[in-house]
Design a binder for these strands. Structure first.
Lengths: 119, 119
DNA sequence: TTGACGGGTAGGGAATTCCCTACCTAATGT
DNA sequence: ACATTAGGTAGGGAATTCCCTACCCGTCAA
């Protein structure tokens, strides 16, 4: 088991959300998803930043568990590891009924919750 | 329509992910979800930070469209606005098959994608 | 063995984040 | 009218982020 029980592990959760907070890193994830595992070079060619900067983005993603690396000779093949994203989805779940309500237009009534007796 | 078409609006997406990157802000969202709309005071009582800091967190959440405020006299009632979270879920969707694969253990074979002929 | 290549680490600088203490405004109550 | 309350804004400081240029190490090819 990764995180026994429901969404507890706060430090890990924090690392995942922080990793996703950067556009370059989200783009790396997209590339790995759409094009499969790739060495750093191939990824680097897609961005306007220098390779060492990308290297650090990859480190952040690695420490969040969102990618893994496998060495082949002098290359490092990076691969998407989507499991932490499943936890993001779990985090999202309890909010789902809110946006569904609101989209149907009856939210105005229903999400006036228990203690909403503001004058 | 908010973002005509599929997940295009990069600036908005960025603001939402950035807003979620902070634990205090995620906790604010949870409180609004579980306890309903509340004035700033009630929220402030739940954190170890001073009120002006919370005020700025609320501003970030507001600018990401994740909360709305409504004035009642001198109070501002904050309310969860979950719509942007629906877009996070949309963003998550294409990754879903990856964590499902991996969880079934056949990922090792299947996610060796098109161009995986590394020596 | 020597050189070139893939890629990570060091160190530093500019910008951003996150917190703080003051202060300001609008509404309320006396 | 005046003090109080709710809450935002100003400005500043420490920490973090994100980028850079150098540099380092391991692997492969001559």
């Amino acid at each position: 088991m990764t995180t026994t029980g429901a969404g507890a592990d706060t430090a890990a959760e924090d690392r995942v959300f922080a990793a996703l907070a950067n556009g370059t890193r989200r783009e790396v994830l997209r590339l790995l998803r759409e094009e499969g595992p790739q060495p750093v070079q191939a990824l680097a060619g897609r961005f306007d930043i220098r390779r060492p900067s990308l290297s650090e983005h990859l480190k952040v993603l690695r420490e969040a568990g969102l990618v893994s690396e496998q060495r082949y000779g002098r290359q490092r093949i990076y691969r998407l590891e989507a499991a932490p994203l499943a936890e993001v989805q779990d985090w999202l779940h309890p909010y789902e009924r809110f946006w569904r309500q609101r989209l149907r237009g009856l939210g105005e009534l229903l999400d006036r919750m228990p203690d909403d007796d503001w004058p």
